[in-house]
């Protein structure tokens, strides 16, 4: 799997944090503008996969720190749990709940169950893509 390319390895090293940051940016702007959990998750997964191609599986697993299956599980739980608050307020499942408040530095902040759902999707996409990719890469070796 190792490509032994100095350029790719150096670029992979620098691109990884940039791409991860970009994926979070995509995730957070997703409610009103193009972006969202799915796209963000794909970008983040692509960042790790690029790292995998430029280095090897062990360092890719190391840079990920957690098992992708944990990400998958946590993401699914978040996504399902985001459906529940509405039920306790007597509304239909998945009805969006919004909380607005002002924080000292950031100004007005809007939090919602939609955001929780999107973060869940983000984690599920990273988890499932990386589970498949890492398994395929390990089968090749």
């Amino acid at each position: 799997m190792n490509m032994h390319s100095l350029i790719l390895r150096t670029a992979g090293h620098f691109l990884l944090p940039l791409l991860l940051l970009f994926s979070v940016f995509l995730l957070l702007r997703g409610h009103d503008e193009p972006g969202g959990g799915f796209i963000g998750g794909l970008v983040a997964a692509a960042a790790i996969v690029l790292y995998l191609f430029s280095m090897d599986i062990r360092s890719a697993r190391k840079v990920l720190r957690v098992d992708p299956r944990d990400l998958l599980g946590a993401g699914m739980v978040l996504a399902v749990v985001s459906a529940l608050p509405a039920a306790f307020l007597g509304q239909a499942f998945f009805t969006a709940q919004w909380w607005e408040f002002t924080a000292p530095v950031f100004g007005e902040i809007k939090l919602s169950t939609v955001l929780v759902f999107d973060i869940g999707v983000y984690l599920v996409v990273i988890g499932s893509v990386l589970t498949i990719m890492l398994n395929l890469a390990e089968a090749e070796d």
Binding site: D70, L72, G73, M76, V80, L84, G90, Q91, A92, F93
Partner: peptide, 24 residues
């Protein structure tokens, strides 16, 4: 609002998500 119609879908989804989380 009658919750009974959504529970048969929500419960297995939640149970499945939790059992992925505790896959070890």
């Amino acid at each position: 609002m009658n919750m009974s119609v959504a529970l048969p879908v929500i419960i297995p989804l939640l149970a499945g998500a939790l059992s992925v989380m505790f896959w070890r």
